[in-house]
Design a protein around this nucleic acid. Structure first.
Lengths: 79, 79, 79, 79
DNA sequence: ATTTTAGGAGTGCAAC
DNA sequence: GTTGCACTCCTAAAAT
């Protein structure tokens, strides 16, 4: 097409996305705040992030992965 | 320390993070839904994402980047 | 198994990967050097990266994307 | 400037980057091949990647992180 | 064909 | 101001 009429539907979809993304950013900031608070309390945020990751996994899957990790470490002589 | 007492404060911080992350995931899913809807309507979601990115930029910064991009393209003989 | 015999084969695979990753890191550093050199010459490395990305695309695909981008921009009233 | 003369220096910098990127891609492919080989031998590549990551760390730093991880796990009642 | 996952690139923030 | 780090985003591969 040679003309480029305004496409309201497209614009509305994009605006919906923008609103959602904005909410998401707000929550991301909240998360950041919690980590900051934790850090200033003396916690190691890197390890905390690891905890969050581990807790997200299914306990059984996590356990199996831990075991396999140990097995591999031994197999390659990693103390 | 040899004992590892439960650290309620740490646990609470982690739980707050988990709640926030869960909300975030919900919103991410909503965003995904909007893109799916857009796709099934016939829109190109890759370009839509580009629009969202461009609109997020400051208009002036965006304009300057576009101009510089054209300059560089010409400079290296890119049609 | 209760014993964890050394698994030479696993170790060798990992060592091969490590050698390759090390080479890769060397090359990444070289790339970084070229960008640094470009920057100190006065070039905008962000735009340069964009050029590299665009040149990697198939010319036709790139052209089509550019056109579609313009179409969408107009459709949502983006100057 | 209204004219956009070819900027040979810019083009050469970009070409150097492209050559390096191409080498890098080759090596990435080699890495991928090793993982494929490992996988078809029966190894768990996810754990292998973890080994590579762990071995890249300084032993002492790694040890400290492992200890802290265990401490935090106990602190939040993670078995 | 769709969904998940990993790797890589890009962006923004923070510490120095 | 620059370097490093962390988060997000995106593409490509993989699995289902």
């Amino acid at each position: 097409m040679t003309t480029t009429p305004t496409d309201t539907r497209l614009e509305q979809l994009i605006e919906r996305i923008e609103r959602l993304e904005s909410e998401k950013r707000g929550i991301s900031d909240d998360v950041k705040d919690v980590y900051s608070e934790a850090k200033s309390t003396g916690y190691d945020t890197k390890i905390m992030r690891k905890m969050v990751r581990l807790r997200r996994m299914q306990p059984q899957a996590r356990r199996e992965e831990e075991i396999l990790t140990e097995t591999y470490k031994s197999a390659i002589g990693m103390v």
